[in-house]
Amino acid sequence: MTELVIISGKGGTGKTSILASFAALAGNAVFADCDVDAADLHLILNPTIQSRNVFSSGHEAVIRQVDCTQCGECYDVCRFDAVIKSESHSGELKFTVDPFSCEGCGVCVWFCPVKAIDFPECVCGEWYVSDTRFGPMVHARLGIAAENSGKLVSLVRREAKKIADEGGRDLVLVDGPPGIGCPVIASITGSDAAIVVTEPTLSGRHDLERVMELTRHFQIPVYVCINKWDINPEMTESVESDAVEAGAVLLGRIPYDREVTNAQIRGVSVVEHGKGPASESIRGVWEKWLTM
């Protein structure tokens, strides 16, 4: 079984549109949407949810006001400015924890002299196992302003792999998040290969460099494809030669094509939509990948 992750460094380069087309072309695969922050793959694959699961991770400090003696120890030990000190009109002190700033480190819980701080587990989102017209899909929704997207990403990948193992499917296609931080690291570590979708812009080039540094750091074989290459053909050349120099294998170019947006509006993948030059190019990229 092969686990292939599609990432981009920079957001909005067409990663999900391309992955949805790969899903249509792959045949015997399982899909994992690891862009849990802003998951979009379901808008194209239109999954029917088979099982819905709560994702809880980490803890959050909550001060029980009835037991609090207003000693201020929690305020002093918190390094994340998450304990808020307020004073009422009558001059009475009150300490509360701002859930958005709380890191879940538990230091205040440990040091509260009267043990007035609860530390419940946080419900951070939901994850789903679904059926799609191309095969099973594992996806998730991170709660608003929630933390620990890296752990949710690891979980989605693990479940997708399990389904592939059990169902004798030979490919797991992972839609990765943008950036180079924790959810991206969780998406790529230990996977068999990464395809980076980038665009011929200075920003795209800059972000490709950083994301390839990351794949090198974690020793993931990397393949590159340039989307909207005709926006700047010269830049495409130079991005491609930089990529090859940095150790990537090129999979091809996809032209700018408004039919990509039209496919998205119709809720189908670009290759199913079948109109415009991008559809053919994406098919070409997939065929090239298959020869690797």
Binding site: G150, K151, S154, I185, A186, T189, G190, F218, Q219
Partner: peptide, 13 residues
């Protein structure tokens, strides 16, 4: 045989 190094890449998390 005794293992002299880790045989899988870290999952980081």
């Amino acid at each position: 045989q005794e293992a002299k190094s880790s045989d899988v890449r870290g999952h980081w998390q």
